[in-house]
Write a protein that binds this DNA or RNA. Structure first.
Length: 281
DNA sequence: AGCCAGGGTCTGC
DNA sequence: GCAGACCATGGC
């Protein structure tokens, strides 16, 4: 974790000297949908069947009610804290567009979320907006997920969801995406290695593998690979990024940065969404 | 009120 | 291959 210090304090774990990391930038940049701001510089959410509250002061991050073991097993990988972002940002900064995007939000990290949750989250995201997507996922978890602590629900398993009907899914109000969710759940249940397979496949094959799911096209597949499998090369092209590519990279994205194109995409996405005249947020 | 949302499918050329 | 209608729903 290059120079990051970790220590236990009561029931909390504290990381200090964490660079290139900002909670709000990371948790509110459109890659995850289950975190909410509970206070200034403090967020709560559920991932990997754990409820976590986490807060930040400068380069110090406090993980509440957890342990060193959970940090190693879950939260350090989840927040991608074992990757050297400083060296990546240095590479990116040679590109003037990326340099500007990184200056705007240098604390974004690409999360390593659970593949199943990520799959559903981005199936739900199609022709949808982020605010409503959060609501749909919230209702899915409240309706079908295990209550792991008071009023906090884990993400429901594919097995459980696979034997629901569209009518039983109605409370989620997922619209036409309900049938896509069921198809994904059934595929993940019928083939227990369905959602581990992408780890062992090259990008293009992994993308095609995920596109077997109804409702998963190239954009959603790349989101799943990027945010769920840590495939930083996956490059989701939504309407914003397509516009940005035409404007800033008419000759194509720099060849030497392609292994990390997905991370670059995340900096760009956040930057253009908050620096476009029609911006509503 | 009406537009549009981090797209994908289906149909018709 | 590629354009265009259509999809459910609700935030704004």
């Amino acid at each position: 974790m290059n120079d990051v210090k970790m220590k236990e304090k009561g029931h909390d774990v504290i990381l200090s000297d964490v660079r290139c990391f900002d909670l709000e930038q990371t948790l509110d940049c459109g890659q995850s949908f289950r975190w909410h701001k509970v206070d200034e510089n403090q967020f709560s959410g559920v991932a990997y069947h754990k409820f976590l509250t986490v807060s930040q002061t400068d380069t110090t991050i406090c993980f509440h009610n957890t342990s060193l073991e959970e940090m190693e097993q879950i939260w350090i990988p989840y927040f991608d804290l074992d990757r050297n972002y400083q060296s990546l940002q240095k590479k990116f900064a040679k590109d003037s567009v990326l340099k500007q995007a990184i200056q705007f939000a240098p604390g974004i990290r690409v999360l390593r979320q659970e593949p199943w949750e990520t799959t559903v989250s981005f199936i739900f995201s199609q022709n949808n907006n982020i605010a409503r997507n959060k609501g749909m996922i919230q209702r899915l978890c409240e309706s079908f997920g295990e209550e792991i602590s008071p009023s906090q629900f884990a993400f429901p398993s594919p097995q459980l969801l696979s034997h629901q009907t569209l009518e039983e899914l109605a409370p989620v109000r997922a619209g036409f995406r309900g049938k896509y969710l069921l198809d994904a759940a059934q595929k993940a249940t019928a083939d227990t290695s369905f959602l581990t397979k992408p780890y062992s496949l090259p990008l293009e094959e992994a993308r095609n593998w995920l596109m077997q799911i109804k409702g998963v096209g190239p954009k959603v597949a790349d989101c799943i690979l990027l945010y769920g499998f840590g495939q930083l090369e996956a490059f989701p092209r939504d309407v914003w990024i397509i516009r940005a590519m035409e404007t800033f990279y008419p000759q194509g994205f720099p060849e030497n940065l392609k292994p990390w194109a997905g991370l670059a995409q995340q900096y760009l996405f956040h930057y253009i969404r908050h620096n476009t005249p029609t911006e509503k947020n």
